[in-house]
Write a protein that binds this DNA or RNA. Structure first.
Length: 574
DNA sequence: CAGTGAGCGAGCTTCCGCTTGACTT
């Protein structure tokens, strides 16, 4: 019998089915050990010695694994194919060796990117050993996070009473919220006017907007006062109209890629009103029931089986007109993506949402995943976009208007997964606006000249979901921790959630101001990205992990000492 | 003499990332 170790029990169950009787698959339930949450867990002065501690729950798991190992003649470590996965294998192996349970039994490491029979069978034929440089990169990451957090936090306690914590991830997330708030406070709304006309041709009304005045194209903010707008309105009212040019252009809109953790959290937030943590709780249940693939992922790729099933489901549901000739392949754009899993998708595309039993939230989330997955493989929507240039003549000014309309000539994926209003383009409403059939030389008549006052708007506050999206873009945090980071910022009273937007508390803003002033390097938006570059070199064997840590610690500790002993003026203390 | 209050010292907080139950409500 061969003993296989993976991290999650649901994954263990699936793999057990694929591998059959000669194997026993057990779950480690995540990292089996961690640094104790107290001082001295990493000792820079003792060559960065790290002390590991097995918690009570893991102790039980490890003894189960140990007992199974007694009956087994081989150990196969099959945790995720990324840095943290390699570390889990290393931790498990290190504990088993420490207990002298391994004897002389062979140990190997296998990795697969999708939990499918083909991928696992293939992986089993290519075993390797633990990737030590990758484990080293984990050790450097783990130690650095500990040293930053457990050094900066006490400095904060001392200098800013009431503050609670700082860290590589949470402090940057907090900074994003605070900087956005400052932008909003600095923002001065600017007045501008839109000018246009409601015209009529062949008994059908349509709207045209001001395009140019005296031969110069007008920009959004060009008409800044009521008097200018009214002058233009009078000129339009006095004029006559002629269609000078009509341009019809077919365009297409492509579907979105399948869900990652971050994009699922965003869409569940905007379309269903779920918080990221609620989304993850529901997704976890769907995963445990075997209904969806793993929900903590940064990959947009689907296993070939998934793509194939989606394509067959499209034909069955919509007919072959909705199926593109070739499968769509998506590329991950997120920085720092590890792509240890595939995208989040239904495990069975023929499991229609309406057949899913269970509560309403589960049904709604599954329906969103099902639709997004299916849509991601459907044909593009085809849209005919018409642009009509209309000159205004017989009036005091040289004015041109432009009318834009578009008609969906083939819905494609839009039949299933609509584009959210205002989601990614300002002129989104024009997608559905239809123009009458216009031809050059037509003389539409004026129904009404239109002017309207507007003010520019400040940037919006972040929601939990949009902050996570931003963090993902910066490569900060991981799918397994996005929701947790949102909770930390609130528990520390650094931010509060109001109408699903994040508002920084005074305490959060003071902490951010302090960190920006005295530890700017460590809360820069690119700090994690720079760290990741070093970790890449490390995992390629081009750097030694202790050298990376030593370089970091030399600068960091000297700087901390300087700030820690600096006598702040009394007024600093709140 | 009892109550008050100044002053002192001890103990506590804290990171990120991987994973579920075992808790309570």
């Amino acid at each position: 019998m061969k003993l296989v170790i993976v991290e999650s029990p649901a994954k263990a169950k699936t793999i057990n089915n694929y591998l059959g009787k000669d194997y026993e698959v057990l779950a480690s339930f995540g990292h089996v050990r961690d640094l104790p949450a107290k001082d001295g867990s990493v000792l820079p002065d003792e060559d960065f010695a790290m002390s590991w501690e097995v918690d009570a729950a893991s102790r039980k798991r490890l003894s189960d694994i140990g007992n199974a190992l007694k009956e087994a003649d081989e150990l196969i470590l099959a945790t995720d194919p990324d840095r943290e996965g390699e570390a889990i294998s290393w931790h498990v192996l290190d504990v088993l060796r420490g207990k002298k349970l391994l004897k002389d039994k062979p140990v190997s490491r296998v990795v697969f990117n999708a939990i499918t029979k083909a991928a696992i069978t293939e992986a089993m034929q290519h075993p390797r050993q633990i990737d030590e440089p990758l484990v080293d990169a984990y050790l450097a990451r783990r130690a650095l996070d500990y040293l930053v957090g457990f050094t900066l936090s006490p400095v904060l306690w001392r200098k800013l009473p009431g503050s609670r914590s700082a860290g590589r991830v949470q402090s940057v997330a907090l900074r994003l919220v605070c900087e956005r708030e400052s932008e909003i406070e600095r923002f001065r709304p600017q007045e501008y006017w839109s000018v246009g006309a409601r015209l009529n041709e062949k008994s059908k009304s349509f709207e045209a907007r001001l395009y140019s005045v005296d031969g110069r194209k007008t920009d959004k903010l060009d008409i800044a006062s009521a008097s200018e707008a009214e002058a233009l309105k009078r000129a339009i009212e006095a004029g006559a109209f002629s269609v000078a040019a009509v341009d019809r252009k077919p365009t297409r809109r492509n579907p979105y890629p399948p869900f990652t953790t971050s994009s699922l959290q965003q869409d569940a937030s905007s379309r269903l009103g779920f918080s990221p943590s609620r989304t993850m709780q529901i997704a976890q249940r769907l995963y445990e029931e075997g209904v969806i693939t793993y929900m903590r992922t940064d990959a947009v790729q689907m296993a070939p089986e998934g793509i194939d099933e989606a394509r067959r489901a499209i034909v069955k549901t919509f007919g072959s007109d909705y199926l593109p000739e070739k499968p769509r392949i998506y590329q991950t754009k997120a920085k720092n993506a590890q792509e240890a899993h595939e995208a989040i998708r239904p495990t069975d595309m023929f499991r229609h949402p309406d057949t899913l039993r269970g509560d309403a939230d589960k049904h709604r989330l599954y329906e969103l995943i099902w639709k997004r997955t299916l849509a991601s493989q459907m044909r593009s929507a085809e849209i005919e976009r018409t642009t009509a240039d209309i000159s205004v003549f017989a009036t005091s000014r040289d004015i041109a208007l432009r009318a834009v309309g578009s008609v969906v000539t083939f819905p494609g994926f839009l039949a299933l997964y609509g584009v959210e209003a205002g989601a990614d383009r300002e002129d989104g409403d024009e997608d559905s606006r239809e123009l009458p059939p216009l031809a050059v030389g037509d003389r539409p008549r004026l129904e009404e000249a239109l002017i309207e006052q507007h003010f520019t708007q400040p940037p919006p506050r972040y929601s939990e979901a949009s902050l996570i999206k931003k963090m993902e873009e910066l490569g900060i945090g991981r799918p397994s921790t996005y929701a947790a980071t949102m909770s930390v910022l609130q528990e520390r009273n650094y931010v509060r959630l109001e109408k699903r937007t994040l508002i920084p508390e005074d305490r959060g803003r003071i902490v951010t101001a302090f960190l920006e002033s005295f530890f700017n390097r460590y809360v820069e938006y690119g700090f994690t990205a720079q760290l990741e570059e070093q970790l890449d070199l490390l995992s390629n064997g081009k750097l030694a992990w202790k050298d990376v840590l030593r370089q970091f610690w030399t600068d960091f500790s000297a700087h901390v000492e300087e700030i820690r002993t600096f006598a702040f003026p009394r007024f600093w203390m709140p």
